[in-house]
Amino acid sequence: MTDIALRGVDGLKVDYLALVRRRRLYSALLLVLFVALIAGGFDLADSRNAGGFWSGLSQIFDFPVELVREAINKGAALPGNLWRYLPAMIETINIAAVSTLLGAVLAVFLSLLSTRGLARWPRLMPLFRRVMDTMRAIPEIVIALVLIFVLGGGPVPAMIAIAFHTAGALGKLFSEVNENADLKPIEGLSSVGASWFQRMWLGVLPQVMPNYLSYALLRFEINVRASAILGFVGAGGIGAELRVAISWGTGRYDAAAAIFLLLFLTIVAIDQLSSHVRNRLVGGH
């Protein structure tokens, strides 16, 4: 107060403007640093890349154009190719679906066990949380590659790898949902002597099911992409077919175009379907 009284409103204004200027300076410095990081990063990435950015930029459409041209030239073969690769696409979707299903079931248990108020063993809550964190942190490709070595190629390693990651990722989201669950039904159930399993099954799950389903669908979308990409590094499904189709020399671009198309259509369809269902699930109440 005395300060203001001594220096008046003008002094206050000067101080305020100095403060604003300093904040702006810091923001500007941060921005410059950020831009420098991005620019330097791209420059470094460019120098460590086999082909340069600018020379590559002019060729960026070469491959798609070649692909499309060959696909058009062999246009008659496209329906046949689509039909031929449909089983592989279905396998990829199956991998994603099963792993989402298994991962979600595991995630339900993990999340219930690590939510305050619901946990079966409250003391072990931190343990289950760490378990979920670890499952989430391990990249799918690591598990998939190791399992391919042990179990041989095919859909099972990819399925296990994705399910493992899904359990961790969904577990975290589910436990956030659980935190908002109403505890009264559970108290009611425990007052009549319900076991932990019955309390969860009858008291919690009906409340959280729509949100669970919504998150699981979102995860399914992500998992379809993941299972396609894992196929490319050795697991089965559409990714493996794509790898054969685009390999140098023996490349069959009409087949590759069909696979691209199939993958694109599937992803867009699942995307649309899941966002529609999710809107109905979560937006409905």
Partner: peptide, 28 residues
Amino acid sequence: FDFLRGVDGLIWTIILSRAFGPGPLTGS
């Protein structure tokens, strides 16, 4: 946006690595 998302990361990776060759730039 739908197109960028729908053409999965896998397809982008393949198309871009044909143009830019292997390396971190392509991945970025």
